[in-house]
Amino acid sequence: MIVAGCDVGSLTAEAVILKDSQVLTSKIMGVRATAEKSAVCVMDLALAQAGLKYSDIDACYSTGYGRQAIPFSQKNISEISCHGMGAYWADNSIRTIVDIGGQDCKVISIDENGLVQEFIMNDKCAAGTGRCLEVLAKALDVELHELGPLSQKARKPINLTNKCSIFMELEVMQHVYKKRKARDIAAGINNAVAKRVASLSKSVPLKPNFAITGGVSKNVGVVSRMEKLLDVKFTPLTVDPQIIGALGAAIFAQKENGNHD
């Protein structure tokens, strides 16, 4: 049985194709003008890589910010359920998932079947999201993917006191004016984002084991700071943490369309 999941987020879109409960292929790309275009584009890429056609897919579910606009999906499921299920499938010892995406961050608590028990989410304010990191990386004039490695070399991280991303940007500029080292500023940026997410997670029971997903989980600075602040260790996942949402959607498609294995 071949199933697919498609996750159209605010900044990136992901597609995952599963064949007999194995990940056949996965693709990530930046979003296009509309959610529909992004979905078609990323799915075309994934299908091409797998050497499949749309007609080969038995079921496809969608998730994410643009999940309602996807023409080839039979059902859409909230990204919270999908992140829970995706992380659980990748490692069934996981009970708490921290997901830091482009425009939101959430902490999800799941049960021993991978179903959501409780969650908390911030999607009102950009602080503590990937978008905030993007704005601050730009202010510092470094690439987004460099923030993590750069921050690891910091000796005296700066302290960002503001909560608003735009005020943080101003604060970063002030440190740039004062000629502070880029690595120390980068560490300050990562710490600030981690702090925002950590303060969110106080409202959800934190049960081991822990996983971190979403694009920001690729930033080693944020991840290590989160571990320190929450006093936990994140279990490394066997699949790319950025495709967890799409993976979860595919798992739901498989579960609800026969072939329980």
Binding site: S10, A33, T34, K124, C125, R131, S165, I166
Partner: peptide, 15 residues
């Protein structure tokens, strides 16, 4: 309400 999110919201609306 967030200035950062408003930016993406207006882009979506134009699209």
């Amino acid at each position: 309400n967030c200035a950062v999110f408003a930016e993406s919201e207006v882009i979506t609306q134009v699209n």
